[in-house]
C-alpha cells in the first residue's frame, strides 16, 4: 500500500477511542466516545470508514453481532483492538512524548500543561 501503515490523524483518534473500551465496541459507542472527548458530533460514516481502514492495516478486527429489533433487524459490527494497533498507538505516544520534552523550552508553551 502506497501510504504504508502510517496512521492518519483521524485514524489515530478513532483508534484511541476504541482503545478506551476494555473488550470491543461497535460504531455508536466509538462515535459517542469521540463526541464526548472532542465536544463535537462527528459522522458515524466517518468513524466506520476510519475503522475499516484500520482493519485493512491490521490494527483492529471486526466481527458481526446479532441483529436486534431496535436496529431495524440489522447486525452490529464490533471492533476489537489488535496487538499491532496497541503497538502503533504506543509508538505514537512515545514519539509525541519525546517531542513534547523538547518543546517545553519554548516561551509560548510555558503555561502549558
Amino acid at each position: 500500500m502506497g501510504k504504508g501503515n502510517r496512521l492518519g490523524e483521524f485514524e489515530e483518534v478513532v483508534l484511541l477511542a476504541l482503545a478506551s473500551f476494555e473488550d470491543s465496541a461497535y460504531g455508536v459507542e466509538v462515535f459517542d466516545t469521540l463526541a464526548r472527548i472532542t465536544g463535537r458530533e462527528g459522522s458515524i460514516t466517518g468513524v466506520y470508514v476510519a475503522l475499516s481502514r484500520l482493519e485493512d492495516k491490521g490494527y483492529v478486527k471486526s466481527y458481526l453481532g446479532k441483529a436486534t429489533a431496535q436496529r431495524g433487524g440489522r447486525a452490529k459490527r464490533f471492533f476489537t483492538l489488535q496487538p499491532a494497533g496497541a503497538e502503533v498507538l504506543k509508538r505514537s505516544r512515545e514519539a509525541m512524548n519525546a517531542l513534547w520534552r523538547g518543546a517545553r523550552l519554548h516561551p509560548l508553551l510555558e503555561d502549558g500543561s
Partner: peptide, 14 residues
C-alpha cells in the same frame, strides 16, 4: 455494502 448494514443499524438504534 459492507458498511451500510452496521451504519444503518447504528443510526436506527440511535
Amino acid at each position: 455494502r459492507d458498511l451500510s448494514e452496521p451504519i444503518l443499524g447504528d443510526l436506527a438504534e440511535r
